[in-house]
Design a protein around this nucleic acid. Structure first.
Length: 456
DNA sequence: ATAGGGTTAG
């Protein structure tokens, strides 16, 4: 069997010189009988057999283009999304355009999803722009694409734009928008959404929506509103409980966190691996070493959950904050084979060495960090500070000179219903650094942490 | 038959 090379438009011309364009409405009509190839593709999709599905469709296209339709292409785009390989779907996108399926909104929306999954926002945006008659689903897909690619500010701008365009958000759109608020610390907009939900009569107010609200409140630092909301949710699931546990943990309220964990298990809700992240965070933020060790232990022994690298990370953080540096190092080195220590864990330890002025261990850890590809400027800054605090000036200078790339500092501030981003010393910002200065004079230096937003 | 839904260490 000979497989086709990655195709281009020209390639399709060569293989199928004479296929005629059929109007999508003709092909995509309701009366159409289900085709066998589409059933096969569906099966491959379900079984996650991505490569098989792609080869199968390519072969089909080569043999007889008429045996595929817009459903085939939709399924294959979904397959490519699952595979998340950056150029895999391009050939199929080309074919979609060639066959005029690009006027089918289902197909376009799945393409937005695909480009989002491969971090290609430019093309996601272009597909969206080319949809002649937009609907709520494709708007939501685009907003979601920006959230998933760490552009929550743009996501919220689009959320507003969508409403200006007379689309009323539904529960799915709101969940996505709330997630953007959580990422930004945009409490004001989050509250606006909460009000919107309270007023609305047509929304399907499901638990996912309330969980998203709860998450928004905790991430925006409004733990009181979070708690109030939590108490009004009648049927809580693991996510609801975990969000609240993590919320308290973020705010250093370990007692509340652990009490909730108990209340949760008492009401027969089974914790999952994420729940334990929250619990371990709670212990770590108040340096409750023994409790942390206890939960780490029962996680696998009582609940049969295999600790992941992030759980080990929590334990390292816990030991570091408690000042048990040597133990933290041994803990990292003794991690089981299946979870390799990562740079973050070593970096946590390096930070602790800096706090405790342990230059010798710091040097060893810095050396171990060298084995990871990524060069984080902060590592050498920490080393420099450590040397400086001991008066080892030549080494301090050496490590400072290793800092090759400096990322400018950045602050976010919510003014009215917008989040403004201030890059340090960026006097070109349209809103001006003036607001930043005003805020500073009002509130002092802003902390770069959860909930550092202000309503003006 | 087809599209959109963040609880996850520092």
């Amino acid at each position: 069997m000979r497989f086709l090379k990655p195709s281009s438009l020209i390639h399709f011309h060569r293989v199928f010189p004479k296929f005629s364009l059929t109007k999508p409405s003709q092909i995509h009509s309701h009366g159409q009988t289900r085709s066998r190839p589409n059933e096969v593709l569906k099966e491959y999709l379900k079984a996650n057999a991505t490569t098989k599905a792609i080869l199968f469709l390519r072969d089909l296209i080569r043999k007889s283009i008429s045996s595929i339709d817009s459903y085939s292409l939709l399924y294959i785009v979904k397959v490519c999304t699952r595979k998340s390989s950056p150029y895999e779907a391009r050939q199929f996108h080309t074919l979609i355009v060639k066959l005029s399926y690009n006027s089918i909104i289902f197909v376009q929306t799945s393409l937005i999803n695909y480009y989002s999954a491969v971090a290609n926002l430019a093309d996601a945006r272009q597909v969206f722009d080319e949809i002649p008659t937009k609907n709520l689903v494709c708007w939501t897909a685009l907003i979601s694409a920006y959230v998933d690619n760490q552009k929550p500010n743009t996501a919220l701008k689009l959320f507003r734009e969508m409403q200006t365009d007379n689309f009323e958000p539904d529960e799915v759109t709101l969940v996505v928008a709330l997630s953007a608020c959580a990422d930004l610390g945009a409490l004001g907009i989050g509250k606006w959404i909460h009000n919107f939900i309270r007023r609305s009569k047509n929304l399907n107010k499901d638990l996912t929506l309330y969980n998203a609200l709860l998450n928004m409140y905790t991430k925006c630092g409004d733990i009181k509103s979070a708690k109030m909301l939590f108490n009004t949710i009648k049927h809580k699931n693991v996510t609801t409980w975990t969000s609240m546990i993590t919320g308290h943990a973020i705010h250093g309220q370990a007692k509340e966190s652990l009490a909730l964990f108990k209340a949760m298990t008492d009401s027969k809700i089974v914790p999952n691996d994420v729940t334990f992240i929250g619990v371990l965070m709670a212990c770590s933020h108040v340096a409750m070493v023994d409790e942390g060790k206890h939960y780490f232990k029962i996680m696998s022994e009582e609940y049969g959950l295999k600790p992941k690298v992030s759980h080990f990370g929590c334990m390292v953080d816990l030991l570091c904050r408690a000042g048990c540096l040597q133990e933290a190092k041994d803990f990292i080195l003794e991690m089981p084979e299946r979870v390799r220590p990562n740079a973050v864990m070593w970096r946590t330890l390096l930070g602790a060495c800096s706090v405790h002025g342990d230059v010798d261990l710091g040097e060893e850890v810095r050396w171990r960090l060298g084995e990871f590809e990524e060069n984080w400027g902060g590592d050498d800054v920490l080393m420099g500070n450590m040397y400086a605090s001991r008066g080892i000036w030549e080494k301090k200078e050496m490590s400072r000179n290793c800092v090759d790339k400096r990322v400018p500092g950045c602050s976010l501030i919510e003014v009215g219903s917008e989040i403004h981003e201030f890059v340090a010393a960026d006097s070109d910002h349209p809103f001006g650094c003036k607001i930043y200065e005003v805020i500073q004079s009002l509130f002092g230096n802003m902390r770069a942490s959860y909930g550092c937003t202000f309503d003006l």
